[in-house]
Design a binder for these strands. Sequence first.
DNA 1: ATCATCGCATTAGCATTACTAATAGTGATA
DNA 2: TATCACTATTAGTAATGCTAATGCGATGAT
Lengths: 297, 297
Amino acid sequence: MNLETLKLYCDVVRLRSFSRGAAANTVSQSAASQAIQQLEAELDAALLDRSRRPLLPTEQGQAFYDACRALLQGFEKARADLAAARERVEGTVRVAAIYSVGLHDMSRHMQPFMSAYPQARVLLECLHPHKVVEAVLNDEADLGILSYPAATRALTVLPLRMEPMVLVAHPAHRLARRRSVAAAELQGERFVAFDRDLAVRKAIDRALKQHDVKVEVVMEFDNVETIKQAIGINAGVSILPRPTVLNESGMRTLAVVPLGLPGLVRPIGIIHRRGRRLTPVVARFIEQLQKPVDRTP
Amino acid sequence: MNLETLKLYCDVVRLRSFSRGAAANTVSQSAASQAIQQLEAELDAALLDRSRRPLLPTEQGQAFYDACRALLQGFEKARADLAAARERVEGTVRVAAIYSVGLHDMSRHMQPFMSAYPQARVLLECLHPHKVVEAVLNDEADLGILSYPAATRALTVLPLRMEPMVLVAHPAHRLARRRSVAAAELQGERFVAFDRDLAVRKAIDRALKQHDVKVEVVMEFDNVETIKQAIGINAGVSILPRPTVLNESGMRTLAVVPLGLPGLVRPIGIIHRRGRRLTPVVARFIEQLQKPVDRTP
DNA sequence: ATCATCGCATTAGCATTACTAATAGTGATA
DNA sequence: TATCACTATTAGTAATGCTAATGCGATGAT
């Protein structure tokens, strides 16, 4: 029982002719005759009275014709809705980013992208790192942007950049005026750290341990913004990605000092679901992200 | 694009599994996989997210699922309506009869038929002779009952009986008391005739002419009842089928006298559209009509 | 009435499609 | 990481749908 047959039937009834109905569906008259005989057999009903010309639907055939028209119309609506939804989806990029990237970085990319692809729709959501991965896995986001991205079976990683890590301290701190600080100088320092389950925390701990430096962790937070606030009240120092303290550095609200820990960088990457064919808009958005940012201001 | 595929899709979505959906449609898992891939290709849309288990419809897939369910439901309703209509039609006999047969004769057959086939529905319509033929030709009646039935390309005739024609006169008429009347005795008689375009009129005219009898036609009507009324006011005599004047003969309101015109009979027959397969109920009804009528009362 | 014409049904042969069984690949789970 | 459960893929085959040619019946003109 296929929809083409129902359409054929409707055309035959409408045009009062098998041959014209067949022509309207670009099949032979024979095919139309056979198809409708089969339709009648499957329904076990006489739909058409062929004994008079021009042929006429029976009472039942007329009722079925009306029902068929509604069905076909409903199907076409469903098909159209599907196409409309596809247009909408294909023009959309759903991005899940960690706070420190989302807030500082994405806005710089948004403007050039939107002017290049004005019909595109970008949905940006800032989440905790774990939630970013989850969102991509659950197909709630097309792309995830996060630090220390880890490829898995289900995720592909596109490295984006390496952010140098710097010492951040209150302007009144003893190390605030220094041109650079060696790792050993942080020994015993009061330290505002990332939460223990974050990759960045583990990287920092590893780097400090490598230089046999022990710090006194006085606070732990899961995001850069809160850490900066803690430093702002001189609760301690911290090690943060340089891009995240550009503003505070410029406004002198926090002191930023290069660290003698050359291997300590925060890798930023894009993740997306492995094997998923990216829509053109998503691919363009990735290209935009991979362009170096214009830093003239 | 066929409805079985849509049903398969709905089952796959509902059961969250290709294999279970396939089983529900008694096809192989492979068939289900291929069918739905093809469906997605035809719609150019990703309906299912297979990368997570249990599989989940995409947003578009969910919308399409809802639409499909409505469509399938609509189709099943159409199919059910069709079946119901068939039941109704197959249990119905539509009979078109001329007045003189319909009123006198059909009622006698109705009762035994209805007690033999209580679920059957008989629709009786009394019409002018020409309209009877027309009704059968236009499939407005399954059977037609009329006098002087003529077989054509489109109509089959089943002879039913021959009705003897008798002289009918006012009880006060000079011939009213006679045991029989010869044709010649009608010479110059005032005569209430059938309309000229009726077969019965032509048969009577032919019979009279054969005996060189000329009557004075004073009125013409298209049905027996009106002719009887005219005779009742002694407007003239007429020649009518005996069964149509049984009542009046018994009640002595009209005089009925056998005529010396042995070849003058009115043939009654059943007509139906040639080549049309009669439904069982219609066939039984014909058998009932062909039984001799019980005349005990 | 008879024949010519038009349109649907039928048939046979061919092309396409849909199915099954077997196998490979993939996501979830211990 | 190995295993399980499920889906995708492939190849071969059965079934289906289509066309072209022809038959048959209804319609309308002579």
